[in-house]
Structures are given as C-alpha cells and as structure tokens.
Design a protein around this nucleic acid. Structure first.
Lengths: 372, 372
DNA sequence: CGCCGTATCTTCGATTTCGAAGGAAGATGG
DNA sequence: CCATCTTCCTTCGAAATCGAAGATACGGCG
C-alpha cells in the first residue's frame, strides 16, 4: 500500500479516476504499467471491478472502485456541545453518521476517551466484519499545530491549551491519526465537491468564525493558524473588547456567540446558533438586522482576502449559514468592493457537501496518511 | 531537455542541488540513474563538473554547475519611467544588468519593441558568442492574465488595457516568453534567497503598492490579480476617492504616488519615490510622518493577511523600502495586532536579493518554461 | 448489417530504473 | 599513522517500466 501503488489507489479513492485509462492519464504511468498494477491491487482485494462506465466514443471503460472491504476510517467533528461521528470507507463514502452530545468543557481527556469509545460503538454496530479500521481523525474547534497534533491557544476551549489530542487518540488505536482544525476539515471536504477550483475558501460561521483555504488541491496550513479571520479588526462605531485582548475583533461582532449574547440581552432567548437562524426565518427584525450586520462585517474582511488570494469560490458553511441574509450581505460586500478581475467568475454559495463536510474532509486528509 | 532530464537540470539551475548525491536525494531517483543521466547531460554540454565541494564527513562531492554556454535568458522589469534589463545564464546568475529610461505612457507597442531592441543590444554587447538565447521575460507594473500574457485593467498604465504583451514580445523572439506582474516577479526572486520559507509574502512599495505570494515554492496567481492589496479599504478620518472609484483605498494613502502628491501640495518638491526616501533620511518631519502613516496603514492590511496566510516571512521591497520608518511601522502594526501563533517566527525584513529581485524572479520562472 | 473511427485494455520485447555491493576519497580519533 | 566511519560515486545483474502493436468493445453511418 505504499508509493506508486498507493498513488493509484489514491486517485481512485479520491474520485479522480474511475478506469485504467484515466489512471494512466492522471498518474503519468504507461497504460500497460497501470494495467499490471491494477491487476495486483484487485488480486490483493483492495480494488474491485464494477460494471462498465459510459463510452466516450469507443470501448467503454471498466469501472474501478475501492473494495468496500479495503478498510474503514473513523472520523469525528467536535463542536462545543456536540460531536458528529462517522465511519467512512476508504473512498470517503459514509457508512454511518451520527451526532452525540458531548461537552468540550469536560476537558480533553474525557472528551477524547469518550470519542474513542464512541468509535468502538460505531464499529461494532455498523462495521462490516473483517473490514479493518485503517485510520482515525477528528476536527477541533480551535487552532491545531499540524506537526504535533496539539491544540494551541484555543479561545473557546478552556483546559485544552497545548493538549496532545493526536497522542491521546492514538493511544486507543495503533493507526494513523489526524487532528485538524474544524474549518480546515470543512475546506478539505468541500474541495471534493468543487473539482475545478484551484483555490477555494471555506468560511465556517457557527458559534465562532473559522476559515479554511485549499490551494491547488492541498490544504494551506501555514504555521498552524492559517485561515484565522476571527480576530481581524473591523470598522465599527462602538468599541468591544474581544477575549483575545484586542478591540473590535470580527468575532466579537459577527460570531454566533456574539449574536446570541446580544439577542439574550434584548430579552430574546436563544441557546444555539440554529435558534438565531430560526428567528431570522420567522422574520424577527432584531435577529435579521444582527445577522445582516454580521454578514456585512464578514464580507468586508473577505474583501481583503479575495483581492489577495483570488479564490475560485467561497463556500459558506456552519450552523449560521442557512440564514439567507448572512450570505446575501456577504455577497453584497464582496461584489461591491472587490476588484472586477477577482470577482468575475467568483462563486459565493452555501455548502455542496452538506453537514458532513468536515467528516468528508477528515476522510480525505486521512486517506493521504493511510496510503502514504 | 525535457522530462526527467529537465528535472535534474532544474534542480541544479535553481541552486537546490550541487552534486549527484543531492540530485538523487531531491529527485527521488536512484543514485545510479542520476549518475547515468548526469553523464549524458555533461556529454551534451549542458552541465559541467567544477571542482569539489566541501565534505560532510565523507568523500567530497564533485560539484555540478550549469554550463555557461547552456543558454541565456533576457529579462526586464518595466517601471513607470524606466526599465531594468538584464541577461542571465540558465542558473539565474546575471551577466549584465542595466537601467534604461523608458516611459510606459508611450504605449505598449513602442515600449515592447524598444525592449526587444534593448535585448538585442545587450546580446550583441555582452552575450558570449555561440551561446543561444533560450527565453525572454518581463515584469509589468499592473495585473497580468497568466494564461494569455495580456495586461488586464491596469490602474496606472493608460493605453495598455488588454494589450497582448506576451504575443508582441514573442513576435521578436521565437522562444518561451514570460509576462508577469512585477510584484509577483519580486516574490519569485526573493524566494530563492529564503529557501526554508514555505510561505513568503513580498510587498513592493514604490509608486504603487503590490504584493506577491509564494506558497510551497510556487507563485500563487489566483485568476491573475492575486496579491493585489492596493484597493483595500483602510480606516481613515478623511475620505479620499481612489482612481478605482472606491473610497479610502490603501493606494490612495500609502503608495509612493500618494505620498509624493501630498508632499508636492505642501510645497516640498519630489519627483520619484527615492526623493521621498531621501527626505526621510534628511529628517524632514513632513516626509517622515507621511511615511510612518503609510507603514501603519500597510501594516494594518498585512495584519489580516498574516493571520490568514501565516507566512514564514514578509519581505518589503520597492523604491520606498529603504525608508526605515516604513518597515518599522509595518512591523509594529503586524506584531501588535496579529495572533501570537502567526507572528511567533515571522520575519519582516527588507530584500535579500537586492534591486535585481524581479529580474532574478523572471529568470526563475522562465527556467521552468525553458526546461519544460 | 458491416465498415470505420475511437477509446479501452493487453501482450511482449526493448529500455530504463533500481538497488545491493563495492570502490574511491575524505574525516575522525586513538 | 592506521583503523574506522561517513559520504560520494560507479558497476552490474534484477526488476520495473515503457511503448508500439494488437486485441477488444462500442457508437455512428451509409
């Protein structure tokens, strides 16, 4: 499962290639070599041949797929008050996804151990017998040092600073382990649905505000905090001090948490970002105005980044993203203020991958580790 | 000169490898294959063996260099009122560099044809006989569509909009042609001096403000305008309308042109950005205050980008960059406002490649086209 | 229907690449 | 000064890869 052999598997698993001919084109190998190796992979039970594809004017290709028994990945997306967990096959297709309550305030040990136990539950309940688990991974709602798998200076995860999540998770499974920021996972997940995008920005608007960037098919990590936009200073009349110690951070005005706190002060009770969305859909003017303002502020920040990075698309996800005024005012700000060249073919839209985007992203990134 | 053979040449030319052993390590090929191919390349006169390198504990490597007769590149960096031109060998080392007056207001045809003539002059005066020209390239002080080599909506190049620079230049030389934004070229040039940087931002502060980004050793182009920061809205008391039609663009406050126009209004005559630098060095308070303010505004914009991209270094170049207060106030703004994780090992400094950075960058990018 | 063009996949000899072993040249350390 | 270690480079048989030619399968067209 290493080297060039892995490259072929990766191309099939990632959905880039479906036939020997496509593999030859994408891998750069000669068609004959591809055939040989595919035969080996089929022999070892990792690939299966499955019917025929559609003709492109000549003989129909024989479709290749990863064998369902090639392996499983256990992935999670940790939120503040709940975790989404799933089992994927090696091609990233979910077998099961479920949501469990879980409080990161319980501390890292309990949370990670609980996650490991939940993975075991899922495996025994839904894992086909004889199919090996090949990797585990999770998203974290805070900055993660990619090299060490540690949480670094999270603003909304008390007790987690510097905790070695990857190590703890790896203690339960002797397998490749992935620990990554949640917005980054969303970006990796969405990227599979935007195959023609060289540069993709994914904004996660939930309790917090996060952002992930894919450049040329790879996640841009920088030194670990890349994609952070929550502590950018915004233009504002009033002056609010953010938990980071600076004034007028985007997060202090436009995050779900900020919106909820304002609404609660106004006597409108909300407990989760989804409640805010519901209020907007019910036409509650206070909520709509707040969301619209949040979108404008986020959009103004994106303005700078769009001019600079020239993404092909911006995907807005997260629990606040179903609120129409949010994305509308983001669009307005970006299209009004950015350079024509940057916005000419820029698409700004909601998720194509749906609520499991982060889990899919974890699968996609884990695959690289598994097939290394 | 194609394929794997070219990869070895490229590694030597780019300065990444100096011996067969290094080539083997970096190319992934077996040492024996490298030896074979290097022998061929020496046989065909493209590589030469030159003395011995320094030992790393064992036998000394036999140093490899590109043959001086392997070829030449003719490169230029077009400014508003002058052009820098040079001849490089294939390893990017300059043979000659000279500056000529030249006015882009004369229009694209005259400017490009003049450049071609200047290249011919340089070749006949300084080109070693028998050494073939293998590529030509130039930097443009405006946005360039990388696919077509056309100038796109330049703000300070009247008459150039949509002009096919690459085509016009290619009409004079039947060779690979490179046309690229000047800040992008600077970024590519600096990257050679910052080998350990995965992500590098280069800010060009001259008459205009430009920026180039290198990600994982490659120039990030986006859809052509990537790196543009001049039309970002800045926080300001007054309100100035920029040539782009929006209010309070960075360029309208912090570009060399903007500083010069303010100084001239104050009765302090300046004609070039270098004059502003001279005033600052002479301690003229009006100039110093202006430059300091420009640095603060630029720094505030960089703040957003640093949090987002997490570069390993920011290089400040351009004709305004020798002014100490500029870089000092950029540093102050970035270090004060950015996330600790993003600034922890961030270096902000002036050019390591000197005034020829853009020419070196053109050489570096051209090499890829020549050895393709 | 049979022929042609096209695309996919396989066969097989020629070529390239690998990698283990060994020679060459220098550093290190008694 | 000599044994030993490290690194660099080459040699040569084994193995992987290529690529041209052919076999297979499909759509379209007269």
């Amino acid at each position: 499962m290493r080297g060039a052999q892995g490259d072929l598997l990766r191309l099939v698993a990632a959905g880039h290639a479906e036939s020997r001919a496509e593999l030859a084109r994408l891998s750069g190998l000669a068609a004959s070599s591809v055939s040989l190796r595919v035969e080996e992979l089929i022999g070892s039970g990792l690939l299966v041949e499955e019917g025929a594809g559609t003709s492109r004017g000549g003989r129909r290709p024989r479709r290749l797929r990863l064998s369902p028994s090639a392996g499983l990945l256990a992935v999670a997306d940790l939120g503040a008050h709940h975790a989404r967990l799933g089992l994927l096959d090696l091609s990233g297709t979910p077998l099961v996804v479920e949501e469990r309550p879980c409080d990161i305030a319980d501390g890292p040990e309990a949370t990670i151990d609980g996650m490991a136990a939940a993975f075991e539950d899922l495996l025994s309940a839904h894992g086909p017998p004889g199919v090996p688990l090949r990797g585990v991974g999770t998203g974290i709602p805070g900055p993660v040092d990619p090299a060490t798998g540690r949480v670094v200076a999270p603003s909304r995860m008390p007790g987690w600073n510097n905790f070695p999540v990857a190590e703890r998770l790896g203690a339960h499974f002797d397998l490749p382990v992935l620990v990554e920021n949640d917005a980054n996972l969303m970006a990796a997940g969405e990227a599979r649905s935007w195959p023609k995008c060289e540069t993709l920005m994914v904004l996660k608007a939930g309790s917090g505000i996060g952002c992930g960037v894919m450049v040329n098919g790879a996640l841009h990590r920088g030194r670990g905090a890349a994609g952070d936009i929550s502590h950018v200073r915004v233009r504002s009349d009033s002056s609010v001090t953010c938990s980071c110690g600076h004034d007028d951070c985007l997060e202090a005005y436009a995050s779900g948490a900020a919106l909820m706190s304002v609404l609660n002060e106004q006597g409108i009770p909300v407990r989760r970002p989804a409640d805010v969305v519901a209020l907007v859909e019910d036409g509650v003017p206070e909520a709509t105005a707040l969301v619209r303002n949040a979108g404008r502020l986020i959009g103004e920040v994106l303005t700078v980044l769009v001019n600079f990075i020239n993404p092909d698309a911006i995907v807005v996800g997260g629990s606040l993203s179903p609120a129409e005024p949010l994305i509308a005012s983001i669009r307005a700000a970006v299209y009004e203020r950015c350079l024509p060249l940057a916005t000419r073919d820029l698409e700004i839209s909601t998720s194509r991958s749906g609520p499991d985007a982060a889990l899919l992203g974890a699968g996609s990134l884990l695959l690289d580790a598994v097939l290394a």
